[in-house]
Amino acid sequence: MSGFLGEWTSSAIVAVMILLSVGISYVLDRRSGNAVESLGKRVQSRAHVIRNGVEVEVPLSELVPGDIVQLQAGSVIPADLRLISAKDFFVSQASLTGETIPVEKSADAGDADHVAILELRNACFQGSSVSSGSARAVVVNTGSRTFFGSIAERLNEEREETNFDKGIRSFTMLMIRFMVVMVSAVFLIVGLSKGNWLESLFFSLSVAVGLTPEMLPMIVTVNLAKGALKMA
């Protein structure tokens, strides 16, 4: 708008600010992304597997159903497993169930009828970790076929709009309508009172730019007060 109206100095300043903002953001995001990717390549979880009677250490990506895995305190469950043998074996399933207390597992299936899959005594699932004890287990499912992998796939699907999303959209539309009303009113009032319509246009645009940061504290305060009253 400044360039269209001949305000080349203002236009150049705004353009430089936009380029700097976008450029710095892009460079930093790219650097952080590359750093995370490089770290992911360096730090790879491995599992102790018994193949041909010999215990070897292999990356998790090379596990296949049927592999025999050796587990001990501190180990990460590398796939969905069925226990063959266990000794004082406790597993933390907090990432799957939210329960912080470790669950005891054993090779004995027990009464598996009418039991949730995560409560099976002789089953361990990817995403959990060994708290104490030792065990030997056979790999049943790997990758996206694991219980944890199925959750990840569902999360990647198109999600439904939440109340938070609706609230953000509602707030955005409220601000846009408020801007249209305020900008129009300020433009007409300043233009009619001073007779300088160009100055009135710039002033009304500056009001529109400043509305969101100026009104945000007030809106947050009102919503916090309203929420406190509801909770009370």
Rank of each mutant, 00 (worst) to 15 (best):
L224V: 15
S95W: 07
V58K: 05
G127H: 13
A228L: 15
S134E: 10
A208Q: 06
E99P: 01
V43K: 10
F171Y: 13
M1W: 11
L216K: 11
S206M: 02
T142W: 13
S45E: 15
S204T: 03
V183S: 07
S129A: 14
R136T: 03
W197I: 03
G195D: 05
I219C: 10
I13N: 07
V43E: 09
I50Q: 09
L192I: 13
F125Y: 15
F171K: 00
D67T: 00
S134G: 03
I219M: 11
A208H: 07
T146I: 14
V49H: 00
S11H: 13
L28T: 14
I50V: 06
S200C: 08
D80Y: 05
S21C: 04
T212I: 11
V16D: 00
F171C: 02
A185W: 08
P217A: 12
I68R: 04
V222T: 10
V181Q: 04
F147V: 14
G210D: 05
T9D: 08
T9A: 12
S10P: 03
I50D: 01
Q72Y: 01
E157C: 12
G167P: 07
L211P: 07
T100I: 03
G110I: 06
R121T: 12
E99T: 05
S204W: 02
H114W: 01
I168G: 07
E55M: 00
I219N: 09
L198R: 07
Q44I: 09
L229F: 12
G195F: 09
S75Q: 00
P213R: 13
L120T: 02
G149N: 12
S170Y: 04
K194I: 07
I151D: 15
T9L: 12
V115M: 08
S32A: 10
F164I: 12
M182P: 02
L205Q: 06
L19F: 05
E160V: 07
S10Q: 14
R121Y: 01
T162M: 11
K41A: 08
K87H: 14
K105F: 08
L83V: 08
M231Y: 11
L120F: 07
S128F: 10
L211M: 15
I50G: 00
V130M: 03
S184N: 07
A35M: 06
L60N: 11
P65K: 05
L174T: 14
S128C: 08
L216C: 11
V220R: 05
G40K: 10
W8R: 12
R46L: 09
N163V: 10
H114C: 01
E158P: 08
V22H: 02
M182W: 02
R30M: 06
E104N: 04
S32R: 10
L205R: 01
V139W: 05
S150G: 15
E157N: 15
G127E: 14
L20H: 02
V64S: 10
A35C: 00
I101D: 05
V91F: 04
K166Q: 14
G53D: 03
W197V: 09
A225R: 02
